[in-house]
Write a protein that binds this DNA or RNA. Structure first.
Lengths: 143, 143
DNA sequence: ATTAATTCCTACCTTTCCGCTAGGGTTATA
DNA sequence: TATAACCCTAGCGGAAAGGTAGGAATTAAT
């Protein structure tokens, strides 16, 4: 498994905020209820999004969160990179992994690099706006 | 991380056998030494390959393993599917996963299905023979 | 001033999987 | 008869996933 619940939940938050996009801020409580995620757990996920300036937040009464930019400005990849430890398909490509001593002679390294590239490119090719459209437009998309 | 050591070791076994391809059978011991993998651990991995009839085996003196077909006949995907529990990028796509109650309305399911497809297609597009060429031909491949 | 909300921190817990290690018995073949 | 594959079981240490729990500080609308 490549994508953890953290990443999936982060995407659901983004979609939720995109669908309820108004001038108002959306409270964590509301998102948690709609998405059926514990408030406490969601808090830790949303904090990452705020820190990365993906979301704007407002404290106090009437506070909450909103997207800083329109949904089409956020790729799925950009969100997942914030919440996932790593999206590398194998350990040796993870950030901070010790450079493998055998890398120069490795028969499989190019394979993993290629796989990594394919995954990145796909995740960068889809935006939050794309996710909104799918699933509402009559479910007639084909994968 | 998507690919475990089991899968990576399986590929290294396939490459090793492809590179030492003769009429003779190659012993587990030899593979283990060259690849620096414990014999016991390797045994469990190779057993999967034999069971799936990817490898031919011979017992007794002079025994060991060899590829049944030429290296270009095996895709990386076909090998990984044997050793990996699952190559699904998210839990809900794993075989045997309970069908998600929200699947029909899920905003992200198509995303994961698309990602899954991209991964599968890539892994099916590379063969063991491809892995052999890379890394020997002067390291001038570009990813 | 009060209330409602985010923010920030720490600590802990359970479960699952990974990557092995260890041991020993059985069977086939040169 | 030595040598190899075959087959099974058991366990284990570490890491990560997926949370839960609780509290304290800050901010803003009313």
């Amino acid at each position: 498994m490549l994508i953890s619940t953290k990443g999936r939940y982060a995407l659901r938050v983004m979609i939720d905020l995109a669908e309820h996009r108004t001038e108002d801020f959306i409270s964590l409580k509301g998102i948690a209820q709609r998405q059926e995620i514990s408030e406490k757990y969601l808090e830790s996920i949303i904090r990452m999004l705020v820190k990365a300036r993906v979301l704007e937040s407002l404290r106090g009464k009437g506070g909450g969160y909103k997207l800083r930019k329109p949904p089409e400005a956020y790729t799925v990849g950009s969100i997942l990179y914030l919440t996932e430890e790593s999206l590398a398909p194998v350990a040796c490509l993870e950030e901070g992994a010790d450079a493998c001593a055998k890398a120069a002679k490795c028969r499989t390294l190019p394979l993993w690099q290629g796989l990594d590239k394919v995954i990145r490119e796909y995740l960068e090719s889809v935006t939050i706006a794309d996710l909104m459209e799918r699933g509402t437009a009559g479910d007639d998309y084909v994968i």
